[in-house]
């Protein structure tokens, strides 16, 4: 159920993000979703791509610190209350979200939300109990 995300360390400087996307473009790696968390000095770039292993390798070859991180992906209806439903489940089960980001899926007009959760296993169980399906790596890549 876990989705592989890539986390990359970046200095908070001009051109750093462009360098990462440039390297991925050159290698033919497609970015599905992206989010950037930053402080005044550095940032962490979080990416979902179509070829995780290759992306980590090429970034490392270019002297970036890049790691794979387990996250979960949930497909929700792109309408008011969609996200609220999920967050309510987490809240009721005492599940803490480290961070999250979302993107809209082209084919089905659904939104996909990526969550990083301290207790990923518990989160997956509580979503399943509420009949909410999680996306797998394969589905995500085929979107």
């Amino acid at each position: 159920m876990d989705i592989k995300q890539i986390s990359v360390f970046l200095e908070n400087k001009k051109g750093r993000l462009a360098e990462v996307t440039g390297i991925l473009a050159k290698e033919g790696i497609n970015i599905r979703a992206l989010a950037l968390a930053d402080t005044a000095e550095f940032g962490i770039l979080r990416l979902i791509v179509n070829d995780t292993d290759k992306a980590v390798d090429v970034l490392k070859d270019n002297n970036f610190v890049a790691q794979k991180t387990d996250v979960i992906a949930v497909e929700i209806e792109d309408k008011p209350g969609g996200l609220s439903l999920i967050l309510k489940i987490f809240d009721e089960n005492g599940i803490n979200i480290e961070y999250m980001y979302a993107f809209v899926e082209k084919k089905a007009n659904n939104a996909i939300v990526i969550f990083k959760i301290d207790d990923q296993k518990k989160a997956i169980e509580s979503l399943k109990k509420n009949n909410i399906s999680l996306l797998t790596n394969d589905i995500l890549k085929s979107l």
């Binding site: 360390f9 968390a37 402080t39 962490i44």
Partner: peptide
């Protein structure tokens, strides 16, 4: 310099 060992994907850990 950041290293593989030092890195975490959460800002709070890096801070």
């Amino acid at each position: 310099e950041m290293t593989d060992k030092l890195f975490s994907d959460e800002i709070k850990n890096l801070e």
